[in-house]
Design a protein around this nucleic acid. Sequence first.
RNA 1: GGUGGCGUAGCCAAGUGGUAAGGCCAGAGUCUGCAAAACUCUCAUUCGUCGGUUCGAUUCCGACCGCCACCUCCA
Length: 478
Amino acid sequence: MGLRIYNSLSRELEEFTPLKDGHVSIYSCGPTVYDYIHIGNARTALVTDIIRRYFEYRGYNVKLVQNITDVDDKIIARANANGISPSQLAHANSQAYFDDTQRLGIQPADVHPRATEHIPEMIELIQTLIQKDAAYVVDGSVYYRVNAFKEYGKLSRRKPEDLLAGARVEVDERKEDPRDFDLWKAAKPGEPYWKSPWGNGRPGWHIECSSMAMKHLGETIDIHIGGEDLLFPHHENEIAQSELATGCTFARYWVHIAFLKIDGSRMGKSEKNFIFLRDALDKHPAEVIRHFLISAHYRHPLDYASDSLHTSESAIKRLTNCLQALKKIAETADSTQNQKSSDEDKCLMAAIQTMQTRFAEAMDTDFNTAQAMGTIFSLITQVNKSLMDPTEVSIKTLKKAYNVIRETSQILGIYSMDEKNVEDTFTYLKPLLELLLEIRQDARNKKDWDTSDRIRDRLKQINIEIQDSHDGSTWKLL
RNA sequence: GGUGGCGUAGCCAAGUGGUAAGGCCAGAGUCUGCAAAACUCUCAUUCGUCGGUUCGAUUCCGACCGCCACCUCCA
């Protein structure tokens, strides 16, 4: 059974077959950089990251493109409020975006195109649409003529009459049809603008994704990812623009990520109920936040509660403890020695194999991270049981368990001990050593030299040196 | 008004036409001089309500109740 993806276009789970054998092209709708991202935004970025990692794990050559929207109404408004230029604001926040996402363990995309660096491509695409009679100019603005695209609504399954019945469609007299949308917006005084055949102005929101996706990935891309709120109108409009211009399918699989909720409702910037990712990262390790964000399937809403991250923290601790125990054995023991063929050993080996199969099945079924994590934790229980009496299992089997758990955890990004830097280790070590020194001081006070020396000697073996002086003991790493 | 989704133990959350993964919490235990930590075990005859289809439904169908989202910028 191959990899299956739920395609929002067909509303069905579909077998994934790439356009080009062994390659996957992915376009992900990135942030509008008028502020820091919150953990709800991070969910989409994280799911994208895991989808990419899993494709790579399965041997695909992945090209991921994620745009940065660096000019729009909100950026202009925020920049004005802060007394800086829109480009300064966009620059600072896009840098913050990279900082925050990398702290969460998200690898940068292969290309991060910016809207303001693709104005010529957008103008060209708009001109094509005008030539095809799919767009019209009014007072320096250009609108897309929705009626020109027969399949309009195929993604969101909205009928024209449904849209018009909705009370929230604002009627712009200049539009031929209320559903028509901006391709190019004529500049208002004081706004940033670019020169165009229709006068000074700036691009509409949807056109940037069409232009940049096609420029960097070609006229047809494999997978287009975004938050579920983008399905309409953003993605519907992208399809309309792109497919009418090229005559090709724009994206073959549409992946939409459900919202992160907080206290039962959507976490959103306009709702002002968000938590910045960077604030969460200041309080919790990246693996903990990742664990929480992928503890539900990406198409289901996930509710953030005050102790959600504490729950994840405990779970991650369980994972880490098991891996550390295994690592110790894997690194110190000689696997050629202990050759067991006990029932215990066979049982553990079977559990490892079962887990590998189930993990792959879970991820192959529309990237079911919640189920995939379940398989990891099931194996952990098995391993811990074996570890209670390690003489009954072979080192080889334990090493296998270590490698399998580590590898799968790293696909999900919930284990990164290998990447921890010295400073992190130092932070863990410090209180531990202080405690040791305290105990040792007690022993010394009782003239328990046996204990005192043992502590000093053993620490020396792991390259930690204790030095005694009149006013207490100190330690240092050698 | 239109469209889509959800309702599974104290909490979070997978999943399936054949009788419920996993995590957290809690209880019991192992270990320990005592704690802590760690580990082990236990923890839903039941999947919003009521009907229907079926040998059998939590899973399919219908109705109802409750919640959420999109239709306006939002991941």
